[in-house]
């Protein structure tokens, strides 16, 4: 049995989480392989929720699989596809099946995904979802009704340290802290000088806020440039793009692993934050290599 994530967070160890992306369809072979590959190598596994607004096998179902196979799942929940009643019901179910961690997200907008004409729900936002978890925990629902049996979750949230402009993002971050977010997983970070400034601000706010730095595997110089131009809140410094460009074809992912490993090592050695959240985005297979490169 995996250790409860809440305990890991409070143990003072360098926390390592990674991410599993469910398949489009019912063939779970690869998914189960990824779960088995990673479940004992990280402290917890996030499962994305219709990531990038692309319909997939559910986060909740995947979390159950992780649980069954002895891992510690973090249920990612977005507000895009379900109203407050559906979100509440899913949390009641998740709790009864031993899923004790939830990451509260707003969710990408519908039109970037593969059901472009679907109705976007957004009955709640990420902050209201976080509050909702706490309300369910108090034994009530969002309608103010008593629950026969409450929930208990280790609830986390996200923050984008490279957001531009940063001030409104930080105001929302502080609201998430006040709402009792127990951990934060950040958007991808590559520039550790910038990240250190962000962490200085966080530590000044409250020393107990747990921040896991988002590490996204670079697969090519092209991907890095693409993210700089198209992914909000992601900044890959030119030196890393140049470094990726030096890798020959066939060795680019290896170079990306090396860079990710280096970032992780520096974050850990300098105790910049409390841990890392590794996102290989479709390359779950190489997460063990990233962990090794990071000395974890």
């Amino acid at each position: 049995m995996a250790k409860a994530f809440k305990e890991t967070l409070n143990s003072g160890k360098f926390v390592v989480t990674s991410e599993i992306g469910p398949p489009k369809g019912t063939n779970l072979e690869k998914l189960i392989h990824h779960i088995d590959l990673l479940k004992d190598k990280v402290d917890a596994l996030n499962v994305t929720d219709n990531q990038s607004s692309v319909m997939r096998f559910p986060s909740l179902g995947t979390c159950l699989l992780i649980k069954e196979r002895g891992g510690e799942p973090i249920l990612q929940m977005t507000c895009r596809d379900r109203n407050r009643m559906a979100l509440e019901a899913d949390l009641l179910f998740a709790y009864t099946r031993g899923i004790k961690n939830v990451l509260c997200l707003t969710g990408d907008f519908i039109t970037i995904g593969d059901h472009k004409e679907a109705r976007a729900v957004f009955d709640l936002d990420s902050l209201q979802l976080l509050h909702m978890v706490r309300i369910l925990q108090s034994g009530k629902d969002l309608g103010g009704n008593e629950l026969d049996g409450a929930v208990e979750f280790c609830a986390g949230a996200t923050v984008t340290p490279e957001a531009n402009p940063i001030e409104p993002q930080l105001i929302k971050f502080e609201k998430k802290v006040q709402a009792g977010a127990e951990f934060f997983q950040t958007q991808a970070i590559y520039d550790l000088d910038n990240f250190k400034k962000f962490m200085k601000y966080v530590r000044g706010l409250d020393k107990n806020i747990k921040i896991l730095a988002g590490i996204v595997l670079l697969a090519s110089a092209g991907m890095a440039k693409y993210m700089n131009e198209n992914t909000p809140g992601v900044f890959v410094p030119q030196v890393l793009i140049d470094e990726m460009a030096t890798a020959e074809k066939g060795k680019r992912v290896q170079k990306g692993i090396e860079i990710a490993g280096r970032l992780i090592r520096q974050i850990k050695e300098e105790a910049i934050c409390d841990g890392v959240h590794i996102m290989a985005i479709g390359r779950e297979e190489v997460v063990p290599d990233i962990l090794a490169a990071g000395g974890l």
């Binding site: 970037i112 936002d125 902050l127 984008t160 402009p165 993002q169 105001i171 909000p232 809140g233």
Partner: peptide, 20 residues
């Protein structure tokens, strides 16, 4: 706001523009 958010921006603010 494309998502109708009440409590501040999502992570999709892109140099002051909307991610979508």
């Amino acid at each position: 706001c494309a998502k109708g958010l009440l409590n501040g921006p999502c992570g999709g603010t892109n140099n002051g523009k909307c991610e979508i």
